[in-house]
Amino acid sequence: MIRKIFSSRAFAILTILFALLIIWYVAAIKLNMPWQLNAYERAGIENWSYSQFIKDTLNQDRPVLPSAHQVFTEIYKTTFLKKITSKRSLIYHAWITLSATLLGFAIGTILGIFIAIGIVHNKVLDRSLMAWIIASQTIPILAIAPMIIVVLNAIGLSGLLPKALISTYLSFFPVAVGMVKGFRSPSNILLDLMRTYNASKRQIFFKLLWPSSLPYLFTSMKVAIAISLVGAIVGELPTGAVAGLGARLLTGSYYGQTVQIWAALFMAAILAAILVMLVGLVEKQINKYMGFAR
């Protein structure tokens, strides 16, 4: 029994998380120490005790590295103790980022699927588009993000859509590439079988190609949704940081509010984890329904 616990995955993960937590606190004390010593000196406090010193270093207002409990109390304070509509609520900011992420992800996924359909059914498109799709991703699109947003603002588009478009650009790629692979995954035997049934192109697509590409779709959707979130966050940076998790990062860095930065960062991480998990859950359900269950 005990052996089973020791060799379980959860135990290993928890141990490493615990080790990381300890490293975090040690690093926090070490990085914040100089400032605290300086503060004591200025305040003229001579005989401080070590326990007092450690307590103070871990609870500075603007620490170099905030300690874990500071970050989590900040998250707790700004999620549960503030009204959701308040500009200081982290949920409010997360929602703004999330809505752009989801919109961009939806457009990107649909676009990716259509591009894949075009590529699979048209050889000219395949030959001319595929190389450029791959090349398009070597462009650091996030670098264009500020310009896209400013330009779209200039023609009157503002708010959700420009950010969503950046997410779209990032998320269509994994879906398109994954779906091309997926549409080509059925073997020749299966295609021949469809032909012996005298199936039309439409029927082949909906009864063979589409179902057999679904596993590829979900794998690429997991990548796509994570990348969409990054796109939405970066998209918020250049707009003057009005609202959203990216804005929290930027204002935090302007005013040296490290605790706020870390809280926004953890919120983004939590959001990413939830989104990827949701896609995974849908995948599981669909797989069960389609009879792919492993």
Partner: peptide, 29 residues
């Protein structure tokens, strides 16, 4: 094997996170 069991899921998880967000912290440091 122990470190693999513990670090791999975490590594996979971290790969999906918006890591660019650490940029302001790194600039500060």
């Amino acid at each position: 094997p122990f470190l693999q069991r513990g670090l791999l899921p975490l590594g996979n998880f971290v790969s999906a996170l918006p890591i660019v967000g650490v940029a302001p912290i790194m600039v500060m440091w």
